[in-house]
């Protein structure tokens, strides 16, 4: 096995082009488990820890460009205001030790349907920046995942950053698991309200072959919220319930060791209802006045 240690992004892309079999390693919280348990014996590891371009971020009024190797702990500490959904999702990942190492780039690289960053990124229509020696491209998060643990990432490409639109309205994330820490989601849900455009974003995790959006639920809720943005009173129960139903219906879950398909669909509709109520209550506080 080789151990490649690029110290710039250009070197890292060159190394990946020359060694397309090399497995990138950032926080190592997915890669090392596979190595420790002999599930993977790559020809080479490509260490991304020394690549400064991946560990930084920039932010302006509209977008947070978050380097692929920024750990969850930093996201929670610094970006709870501008990326509240992603920060909430980050807070539910593993344990303090895992959040100190694990990264959104690694979450996307693994492309697990259960990855906790994904619903939050879907709900805000984030974009993934990819690069190779051939050039760069940006892919909408809803086009990034192609199947269970599969994505559009080419063998010579690296994930450089995610572009997260700065929140202009309330966001929520919730996840079902057996305890509060160290849990792979049985199912998870993220919602973002966008008062400026009158639109709604959603993301469903762990209830389909890929993370996905609940598009009918988004359209339904956007129509229901029209006319309510300027006079936010508590949402009627039937709106919350219908939204929940539509979210549950959008999922295509399976039975597995963590839960049955029926349970997941039911739990998702509950999560959707609750997170929407929290988000709307937050909006009603006036903090997000357009």
């Amino acid at each position: 096995m080789d151990f490649l240690r690029p110290t710039t992004l250009a070197e890292a892309l060159r190394a990946k082009a020359d060694n397309p079999d090399a497995v990138p390693i950032a926080g190592g919280t997915d890669v090392m488990v596979e190595l420790n348990f002999d599930k993977r014996r790559p020809k080479a590891l490509l260490d991304l820890n020394q690549v400064p371009e991946l560990a930084t971020w920039t932010e302006d009024d509209e977008t947070l460009v978050l380097g692929a190797s920024v750990p969850y702990a930093t996201i929670i500490r610094r970006f709870a205001d501008i990326a509240p959904g992603l920060a909430m999702a980050s807070r539910t990942v593993g344990s303090p030790q895992i959040r100190n190492r694990g990264t959104v780039g690694g979450n996307l690289g693994s492309a697990s349907p259960a990855g906790d960053a994904h619903p939050a990124l879907l709900a805000v229509n984030a974009t993934v920046d990819l690069a190779s020696v051939r050039g760069s491209r940006s892919v909408g998060i809803h086009e990034f995942f192609t199947g269970p643990k599969r994505s559009v990432l080419e063998p010579d490409e690296l994930i450089v950053a995610v572009r997260v639109p700065v929140a202009t309205g309330p966001q929520q994330f919730a996840k079902v698991g057996t305890r509060n820490a160290m849990v792979i989601a049985v199912c998870s849900f993220g919602v973002a309200l966008h008062p400026k455009t009158g639109s709604v974003g959603t993301g469903i995790g762990s209830a389909g072959p890929t993370p996905l959006r609940a598009e009918d639920a988004q359209l339904y809720l956007a129509a229901e919220l029209e006319g309510r943005w300027n006079d936010p009173k508590p949402l009627p129960d039937n709106v919350l319930r219908e939204f929940g139903q539509l979210v549950g219906a959008a999922a295509s879950p399976i039975d597995d060791v963590r839960g049955t398909a029926d349970y997941r669909r039911h739990a998702l509709s509950v999560l959707a209802r609750r997170t929407l109520a929290w988000a709307w209550q937050d909006y009603s506080s006036g903090r997000w006045a357009a």
């Binding site: 240690r5 190592g28 919280t29 090392m32 488990v33 420790n36 303090p96 030790q97 895992i98 190492r101």
Partner: peptide
């Protein structure tokens, strides 16, 4: 297996030595 890496607690079983 928790240790500090550059002052931050991590699971040393999940850090590649070369890192």
């Amino acid at each position: 297996c928790t240790v500090y890496l550059d002052g931050v607690p991590v699971c040393s079983c999940l850090v590649a030595a070369g890192q």
